[in-house]
Write a protein that binds this DNA or RNA. Structure first.
Lengths: 188, 188
DNA sequence: GTCTATAATGTGATAGAC
DNA sequence: GTCTATCACATTATAGAC
Protein backbone atom coordinates (compact mmCIF):
# COMPACT_ATOMS: atom_id res chain seq x y z
CA UNK A 1 0.00 0.00 0.00
CA UNK A 2 1.93 3.01 -1.17
CA UNK A 3 -1.03 5.34 -0.70
CA UNK A 4 1.26 8.24 0.08
CA UNK A 5 4.84 7.06 0.08
CA UNK A 6 7.97 9.07 0.61
CA UNK A 7 8.44 12.10 -1.52
CA UNK A 8 11.42 10.46 -3.23
CA UNK A 9 9.46 7.38 -4.14
CA UNK A 10 6.69 9.47 -5.62
CA UNK A 11 9.19 11.53 -7.59
CA UNK A 12 10.64 8.37 -9.09
CA UNK A 13 7.26 6.95 -10.04
CA UNK A 14 6.10 10.16 -11.67
CA UNK A 15 9.32 10.66 -13.59
CA UNK A 16 9.29 7.05 -14.74
CA UNK A 17 5.65 7.26 -15.81
CA UNK A 18 6.36 10.25 -17.98
CA UNK A 19 9.53 8.76 -19.49
CA UNK A 20 7.87 5.39 -20.17
CA UNK A 21 5.19 7.25 -22.08
CA UNK A 22 7.46 9.59 -24.00
CA UNK A 23 10.31 7.20 -24.81
CA UNK A 24 8.94 3.73 -24.14
CA UNK A 25 9.72 1.30 -21.33
CA UNK A 26 12.70 -0.45 -22.87
CA UNK A 27 14.24 2.78 -24.09
CA UNK A 28 14.13 4.32 -20.64
CA UNK A 29 17.15 3.50 -18.47
CA UNK A 30 17.64 3.70 -14.72
CA UNK A 31 19.94 6.65 -15.29
CA UNK A 32 17.27 8.46 -17.28
CA UNK A 33 14.77 8.05 -14.47
CA UNK A 34 17.28 9.00 -11.78
CA UNK A 35 18.25 12.10 -13.69
CA UNK A 36 14.65 13.16 -14.34
CA UNK A 37 13.69 12.56 -10.71
CA UNK A 38 16.87 14.24 -9.36
CA UNK A 39 17.74 11.13 -7.39
CA UNK A 40 21.22 9.58 -7.34
CA UNK A 41 21.30 6.37 -9.33
CA UNK A 42 22.32 4.05 -6.55
CA UNK A 43 19.86 5.44 -4.07
CA UNK A 44 16.80 4.25 -5.72
CA UNK A 45 17.47 0.60 -5.27
CA UNK A 46 16.35 1.48 -1.79
CA UNK A 47 12.86 2.05 -3.20
CA UNK A 48 12.80 -0.47 -6.05
CA UNK A 49 14.73 -3.68 -6.40
CA UNK A 50 14.47 -3.85 -10.19
CA UNK A 51 13.23 -2.05 -13.24
CA UNK A 52 10.22 -4.36 -13.35
CA UNK A 53 9.14 -3.08 -9.97
CA UNK A 54 9.24 0.51 -11.13
CA UNK A 55 6.92 -0.40 -13.97
CA UNK A 56 4.68 -2.15 -11.48
CA UNK A 57 4.51 1.01 -9.38
CA UNK A 58 3.95 3.16 -12.46
CA UNK A 59 1.05 1.00 -13.65
CA UNK A 60 -0.40 0.90 -10.14
CA UNK A 61 -0.18 4.67 -10.01
CA UNK A 62 -1.89 5.06 -13.37
CA UNK A 63 -4.58 2.57 -12.36
CA UNK A 64 -5.38 4.66 -9.31
CA UNK A 65 -5.70 7.75 -11.50
CA UNK A 66 -7.93 5.94 -13.99
CA UNK A 67 -10.16 4.50 -11.30
CA UNK A 68 -10.47 7.87 -9.60
CA UNK A 69 -11.33 9.51 -12.91
CA UNK A 70 -14.02 6.95 -13.81
CA UNK A 71 -15.52 6.97 -10.33
CA UNK A 72 -15.56 10.74 -10.47
CA UNK A 73 -17.58 10.59 -13.67
CA UNK A 74 -20.01 8.14 -12.08
CA UNK A 75 -20.69 10.72 -9.42
CA UNK A 76 -20.60 13.94 -11.41
CA UNK A 77 -22.25 12.85 -14.69
CA UNK A 78 -25.82 11.62 -14.61
CA UNK A 79 -26.57 9.68 -17.80
CA UNK A 80 -24.57 6.77 -19.22
CA UNK A 81 -24.51 8.32 -22.69
CA UNK A 82 -23.06 11.53 -21.32
CA UNK A 83 -20.46 9.49 -19.44
CA UNK A 84 -19.49 7.69 -22.64
CA UNK A 85 -19.13 10.99 -24.45
CA UNK A 86 -16.96 12.28 -21.62
CA UNK A 87 -14.76 9.23 -22.05
CA UNK A 88 -14.33 9.88 -25.75
CA UNK A 89 -13.29 13.44 -24.91
CA UNK A 90 -10.04 12.05 -23.52
CA UNK A 91 -8.75 11.86 -27.06
CA UNK A 92 -9.51 15.52 -27.66
CA UNK A 93 -8.26 16.69 -24.28
CA UNK A 94 -4.98 14.87 -24.77
CA UNK A 95 -4.72 15.43 -28.50
CA UNK A 96 -1.25 16.98 -28.45
CA UNK A 97 0.20 14.12 -26.42
CA UNK A 98 -1.61 11.48 -28.47
CA UNK A 99 -0.25 12.84 -31.73
CA UNK A 100 3.26 12.96 -30.29
CA UNK A 101 3.44 9.75 -28.27
CA UNK A 102 0.32 7.71 -29.00
CA UNK A 103 -2.01 6.28 -26.36
CA UNK A 104 -0.24 5.74 -23.01
CA UNK A 105 -2.04 2.45 -22.42
CA UNK A 106 -1.92 1.22 -26.01
CA UNK A 107 1.72 1.87 -26.72
CA UNK A 108 2.85 0.43 -23.38
CA UNK A 109 0.73 -2.70 -23.74
CA UNK A 110 1.88 -3.21 -27.32
CA UNK A 111 5.54 -2.84 -26.36
CA UNK A 112 5.35 -5.25 -23.44
CA UNK A 113 3.08 -7.67 -25.29
CA UNK A 114 5.91 -8.50 -27.66
CA UNK A 115 8.02 -10.52 -25.26
CA UNK A 116 7.42 -9.51 -21.66
CA UNK A 117 4.18 -11.33 -20.88
CA UNK A 118 4.40 -10.82 -17.12
CA UNK A 119 4.72 -7.07 -17.48
CA UNK A 120 2.05 -6.95 -20.17
CA UNK A 121 -0.38 -8.53 -17.76
CA UNK A 122 0.11 -5.52 -15.51
CA UNK A 123 -0.36 -3.03 -18.33
CA UNK A 124 -3.44 -4.80 -19.68
CA UNK A 125 -5.13 -4.20 -16.35
CA UNK A 126 -5.54 -0.55 -17.39
CA UNK A 127 -7.58 -1.64 -20.41
CA UNK A 128 -9.53 -3.99 -18.21
CA UNK A 129 -10.62 -1.17 -15.91
CA UNK A 130 -11.86 0.86 -18.88
CA UNK A 131 -13.53 -2.20 -20.36
CA UNK A 132 -15.52 -2.93 -17.19
CA UNK A 133 -16.55 0.69 -16.82
CA UNK A 134 -17.61 0.97 -20.47
CA UNK A 135 -19.57 -2.27 -20.20
CA UNK A 136 -21.48 -0.85 -17.25
CA UNK A 137 -22.37 2.28 -19.21
CA UNK A 138 -23.71 0.30 -22.17
CA UNK A 139 -25.76 -1.86 -19.82
CA UNK A 140 -27.24 1.28 -18.29
CA UNK A 141 -27.99 2.50 -21.80
CA UNK A 142 -30.21 -0.52 -22.36
CA UNK A 143 -27.75 -2.68 -24.33
CA UNK A 144 -27.26 -5.31 -21.64
CA UNK A 145 -27.09 -8.16 -24.16
CA UNK A 146 -24.21 -6.72 -26.16
CA UNK A 147 -22.61 -4.40 -23.63
CA UNK A 148 -19.27 -6.21 -23.60
CA UNK A 149 -19.04 -6.26 -27.37
CA UNK A 150 -19.86 -2.55 -27.56
CA UNK A 151 -17.29 -1.75 -24.88
CA UNK A 152 -14.54 -3.54 -26.78
CA UNK A 153 -15.68 -1.88 -29.99
CA UNK A 154 -15.27 1.57 -28.46
CA UNK A 155 -11.88 0.68 -27.00
CA UNK A 156 -10.74 -0.52 -30.42
CA UNK A 157 -12.03 2.57 -32.20
CA UNK A 158 -10.19 4.79 -29.74
CA UNK A 159 -7.00 2.75 -30.10
CA UNK A 160 -7.21 2.96 -33.87
CA UNK A 161 -7.68 6.70 -33.79
CA UNK A 162 -4.70 7.13 -31.48
CA UNK A 163 -2.51 4.80 -33.55
CA UNK A 164 -3.15 6.48 -36.89
CA UNK A 165 -3.06 10.00 -35.45
CA UNK A 166 0.32 9.13 -33.95
CA UNK A 167 1.65 7.41 -37.07
CA UNK A 168 0.80 10.34 -39.34
CA UNK A 169 1.03 13.06 -36.67
CA UNK A 170 -2.40 14.04 -37.97
CA UNK A 171 -4.38 16.22 -35.58
CA UNK A 172 -7.21 16.88 -38.05
CA UNK A 173 -7.75 13.15 -38.45
CA UNK A 174 -7.93 12.68 -34.69
CA UNK A 175 -10.57 15.39 -34.36
CA UNK A 176 -12.60 14.16 -37.32
CA UNK A 177 -12.68 10.53 -36.24
CA UNK A 178 -13.37 11.39 -32.62
CA UNK A 179 -16.35 13.43 -33.77
CA UNK A 180 -17.55 10.48 -35.85
CA UNK A 181 -17.27 8.20 -32.84
CA UNK A 182 -19.23 10.73 -30.80
CA UNK A 183 -21.97 10.65 -33.45
CA UNK A 184 -22.02 6.86 -33.36
CA UNK A 185 -22.47 7.02 -29.59
CA UNK A 186 -25.22 9.64 -29.85
CA UNK A 187 -27.21 7.59 -32.33
CA UNK A 188 -26.82 4.30 -30.50
CA UNK B 1 19.41 -1.58 -55.44
CA UNK B 2 19.44 -4.83 -53.54
CA UNK B 3 16.93 -6.51 -55.82
CA UNK B 4 18.53 -9.87 -55.22
CA UNK B 5 21.46 -9.42 -52.93
CA UNK B 6 23.85 -11.94 -51.52
CA UNK B 7 22.37 -14.87 -49.74
CA UNK B 8 23.90 -13.70 -46.47
CA UNK B 9 22.43 -10.25 -46.75
CA UNK B 10 19.00 -11.68 -47.41
CA UNK B 11 19.33 -14.02 -44.46
CA UNK B 12 20.12 -11.08 -42.19
CA UNK B 13 17.22 -9.00 -43.44
CA UNK B 14 14.73 -11.81 -43.07
CA UNK B 15 15.91 -12.79 -39.61
CA UNK B 16 15.86 -9.14 -38.51
CA UNK B 17 12.39 -8.60 -39.94
CA UNK B 18 11.03 -11.50 -37.96
CA UNK B 19 12.79 -10.52 -34.74
CA UNK B 20 11.75 -6.87 -35.02
CA UNK B 21 8.19 -8.06 -35.30
CA UNK B 22 8.28 -10.63 -32.53
CA UNK B 23 10.42 -8.77 -30.00
CA UNK B 24 10.46 -5.16 -31.17
CA UNK B 25 13.25 -3.13 -32.73
CA UNK B 26 14.91 -1.87 -29.57
CA UNK B 27 14.70 -5.24 -27.85
CA UNK B 28 16.46 -6.98 -30.73
CA UNK B 29 20.25 -6.89 -30.51
CA UNK B 30 22.92 -7.45 -33.12
CA UNK B 31 23.75 -10.72 -31.42
CA UNK B 32 20.13 -11.85 -31.66
CA UNK B 33 20.05 -11.17 -35.37
CA UNK B 34 23.44 -12.76 -35.97
CA UNK B 35 22.39 -15.86 -34.08
CA UNK B 36 19.05 -16.16 -35.88
CA UNK B 37 20.67 -15.65 -39.28
CA UNK B 38 23.58 -17.99 -38.49
CA UNK B 39 26.06 -15.23 -39.32
CA UNK B 40 29.03 -14.33 -37.11
CA UNK B 41 28.46 -10.99 -35.38
CA UNK B 42 31.45 -9.20 -36.79
CA UNK B 43 30.80 -10.32 -40.31
CA UNK B 44 27.67 -8.46 -40.84
CA UNK B 45 29.19 -5.03 -40.56
CA UNK B 46 30.29 -5.92 -44.04
CA UNK B 47 26.64 -5.72 -45.12
CA UNK B 48 25.35 -3.03 -42.76
CA UNK B 49 27.23 -0.21 -41.12
CA UNK B 50 24.74 0.25 -38.29
CA UNK B 51 21.57 -1.09 -36.73
CA UNK B 52 19.61 1.75 -38.35
CA UNK B 53 20.62 0.47 -41.75
CA UNK B 54 19.31 -2.99 -40.97
CA UNK B 55 15.95 -1.47 -40.12
CA UNK B 56 16.09 0.49 -43.34
CA UNK B 57 16.65 -2.70 -45.30
CA UNK B 58 13.91 -4.50 -43.36
CA UNK B 59 11.38 -1.75 -44.08
CA UNK B 60 12.44 -1.62 -47.71
CA UNK B 61 11.96 -5.35 -47.92
CA UNK B 62 8.50 -5.19 -46.36
CA UNK B 63 7.55 -2.31 -48.65
CA UNK B 64 8.42 -4.41 -51.67
CA UNK B 65 6.24 -7.21 -50.36
CA UNK B 66 3.35 -4.85 -49.65
CA UNK B 67 3.58 -3.19 -53.05
CA UNK B 68 3.73 -6.54 -54.80
CA UNK B 69 0.71 -7.75 -52.85
CA UNK B 70 -1.39 -4.67 -53.61
CA UNK B 71 -0.41 -4.64 -57.27
CA UNK B 72 -1.27 -8.32 -57.44
CA UNK B 73 -4.75 -7.56 -56.17
CA UNK B 74 -5.15 -4.80 -58.74
CA UNK B 75 -4.53 -7.38 -61.43
CA UNK B 76 -6.33 -10.40 -60.02
CA UNK B 77 -9.39 -8.80 -58.38
CA UNK B 78 -11.83 -6.92 -60.58
CA UNK B 79 -13.98 -4.67 -58.40
CA UNK B 80 -12.77 -2.10 -55.87
CA UNK B 81 -15.16 -3.39 -53.21
CA UNK B 82 -13.81 -6.90 -53.61
CA UNK B 83 -10.28 -5.54 -53.34
CA UNK B 84 -11.16 -3.73 -50.12
CA UNK B 85 -12.63 -6.91 -48.69
CA UNK B 86 -9.49 -8.78 -49.65
CA UNK B 87 -7.47 -6.20 -47.77
CA UNK B 88 -9.55 -6.67 -44.62
CA UNK B 89 -8.91 -10.40 -44.88
CA UNK B 90 -5.31 -9.76 -43.89
CA UNK B 91 -6.45 -9.59 -40.29
CA UNK B 92 -8.10 -12.98 -40.54
CA UNK B 93 -5.30 -14.60 -42.49
CA UNK B 94 -2.73 -13.40 -39.97
CA UNK B 95 -4.94 -13.75 -36.92
CA UNK B 96 -2.55 -15.92 -34.93
CA UNK B 97 0.36 -13.56 -35.44
CA UNK B 98 -1.78 -10.48 -34.78
CA UNK B 99 -3.02 -11.85 -31.47
CA UNK B 100 0.53 -12.75 -30.45
CA UNK B 101 2.51 -9.77 -31.70
CA UNK B 102 0.07 -7.14 -32.92
CA UNK B 103 0.21 -5.47 -36.33
CA UNK B 104 3.73 -5.51 -37.84
CA UNK B 105 3.33 -1.97 -39.19
CA UNK B 106 1.46 -0.55 -36.23
CA UNK B 107 3.68 -1.82 -33.46
CA UNK B 108 6.87 -0.85 -35.29
CA UNK B 109 5.62 2.64 -36.11
CA UNK B 110 4.40 3.15 -32.55
CA UNK B 111 7.71 2.04 -31.09
CA UNK B 112 9.82 4.24 -33.33
CA UNK B 113 7.39 7.15 -33.12
CA UNK B 114 8.24 7.60 -29.45
CA UNK B 115 11.69 9.03 -29.92
CA UNK B 116 13.31 7.90 -33.16
CA UNK B 117 11.66 10.22 -35.68
CA UNK B 118 14.05 9.44 -38.52
CA UNK B 119 13.37 5.73 -38.27
CA UNK B 120 9.65 6.29 -37.81
CA UNK B 121 9.57 8.14 -41.09
CA UNK B 122 10.78 4.95 -42.75
CA UNK B 123 8.20 2.80 -40.99
CA UNK B 124 5.36 5.20 -41.71
CA UNK B 125 5.97 4.70 -45.42
CA UNK B 126 4.32 1.29 -45.09
CA UNK B 127 1.13 2.94 -43.89
CA UNK B 128 1.44 5.47 -46.67
CA UNK B 129 1.47 2.78 -49.35
CA UNK B 130 -1.70 1.22 -47.92
CA UNK B 131 -3.29 4.64 -47.58
CA UNK B 132 -2.71 5.52 -51.22
CA UNK B 133 -3.98 2.15 -52.40
CA UNK B 134 -7.10 2.33 -50.21
CA UNK B 135 -7.79 5.85 -51.40
CA UNK B 136 -7.72 4.64 -54.99
CA UNK B 137 -10.22 1.88 -54.20
CA UNK B 138 -12.68 4.28 -52.58
CA UNK B 139 -12.38 6.62 -55.54
CA UNK B 140 -13.18 3.74 -57.85
CA UNK B 141 -16.15 2.93 -55.64
CA UNK B 142 -17.60 6.35 -56.36
CA UNK B 143 -16.51 8.11 -53.17
CA UNK B 144 -13.99 10.41 -54.81
CA UNK B 145 -14.84 13.32 -52.55
CA UNK B 146 -14.17 11.49 -49.30
CA UNK B 147 -11.81 8.75 -50.45
CA UNK B 148 -8.89 9.89 -48.30
CA UNK B 149 -11.03 10.14 -45.19
CA UNK B 150 -12.48 6.69 -45.79
CA UNK B 151 -9.04 5.23 -46.37
CA UNK B 152 -7.75 6.58 -43.06
CA UNK B 153 -10.92 5.39 -41.36
CA UNK B 154 -10.32 1.84 -42.54
CA UNK B 155 -6.67 1.96 -41.53
CA UNK B 156 -7.67 3.15 -38.07
CA UNK B 157 -10.33 0.50 -37.66
CA UNK B 158 -7.84 -2.20 -38.61
CA UNK B 159 -5.23 -0.79 -36.23
CA UNK B 160 -7.77 -0.70 -33.42
CA UNK B 161 -8.79 -4.28 -34.01
CA UNK B 162 -5.18 -5.44 -34.02
CA UNK B 163 -4.32 -3.43 -30.90
CA UNK B 164 -7.20 -4.73 -28.77
CA UNK B 165 -6.92 -8.28 -30.08
CA UNK B 166 -3.24 -8.19 -29.12
CA UNK B 167 -3.82 -6.55 -25.73
CA UNK B 168 -6.42 -9.11 -24.67
CA UNK B 169 -5.13 -12.00 -26.80
CA UNK B 170 -8.74 -12.21 -27.97
CA UNK B 171 -9.19 -14.12 -31.19
CA UNK B 172 -13.00 -14.07 -31.05
CA UNK B 173 -12.96 -10.27 -30.84
CA UNK B 174 -10.68 -10.03 -33.86
CA UNK B 175 -13.02 -12.20 -35.92
CA UNK B 176 -16.17 -10.43 -34.77
CA UNK B 177 -14.86 -6.91 -35.42
CA UNK B 178 -13.32 -7.87 -38.74
CA UNK B 179 -16.70 -9.22 -39.81
CA UNK B 180 -18.35 -5.97 -38.71
CA UNK B 181 -15.83 -3.98 -40.77
CA UNK B 182 -16.57 -6.19 -43.74
CA UNK B 183 -20.27 -5.44 -43.34
CA UNK B 184 -19.52 -1.73 -43.18
CA UNK B 185 -17.58 -2.05 -46.43
CA UNK B 186 -20.35 -4.06 -48.08
CA UNK B 187 -23.01 -1.49 -47.24
CA UNK B 188 -20.93 1.52 -48.22
C1' DG C 1 17.49 7.00 4.64
C1' DT C 2 20.95 8.87 1.50
C1' DC C 3 24.72 8.65 -1.52
C1' DT C 4 29.44 7.02 -3.79
C1' DA C 5 31.88 3.79 -5.97
C1' DT C 6 31.97 0.02 -8.61
C1' DA C 7 30.86 -4.63 -10.18
C1' DA C 8 28.97 -7.74 -13.95
C1' DT C 9 26.98 -8.02 -18.10
C1' DG C 10 25.55 -6.88 -22.73
C1' DT C 11 25.56 -3.47 -26.34
C1' DG C 12 26.80 -1.49 -30.94
C1' DA C 13 30.85 -1.23 -33.41
C1' DT C 14 35.98 -1.90 -35.28
C1' DA C 15 40.49 -3.76 -36.79
C1' DG C 16 42.64 -6.88 -39.07
C1' DA C 17 43.94 -11.92 -40.14
C1' DC C 18 42.53 -15.24 -43.45
C1' DG D 1 33.95 -12.11 -48.71
C1' DT D 2 34.36 -14.35 -44.23
C1' DC D 3 35.42 -14.68 -39.51
C1' DT D 4 37.95 -13.83 -34.78
C1' DA D 5 39.08 -11.00 -31.32
C1' DT D 6 38.22 -7.21 -29.04
C1' DC D 7 37.05 -2.28 -28.12
C1' DA D 8 34.51 1.57 -25.77
C1' DC D 9 30.49 2.35 -23.67
C1' DA D 10 25.94 1.96 -21.30
C1' DT D 11 23.23 -0.93 -18.78
C1' DT D 12 21.17 -3.06 -14.46
C1' DA D 13 22.50 -3.91 -10.06
C1' DT D 14 25.30 -4.29 -5.46
C1' DA D 15 28.28 -3.25 -1.38
C1' DG D 16 29.13 -0.41 1.93
C1' DA D 17 30.42 4.39 3.83
C1' DC D 18 27.93 8.15 5.82
Amino acid sequence: METKGHSNRQKIVQAASRLFYEHGYNQTSFSDIAQAAHIPKGNFYYYFKSKDQILEAVVENRLEDIRAMLEGWERSITGPRERLLRCLDILRNEEQAVVRYGCPMGTLTAELGKDQPALQGQAREMFQVFFIWLTRQFEALGHAGEARELALHVLARMQGIAAIAHAFADLAFLRRETAALRDWTQNL
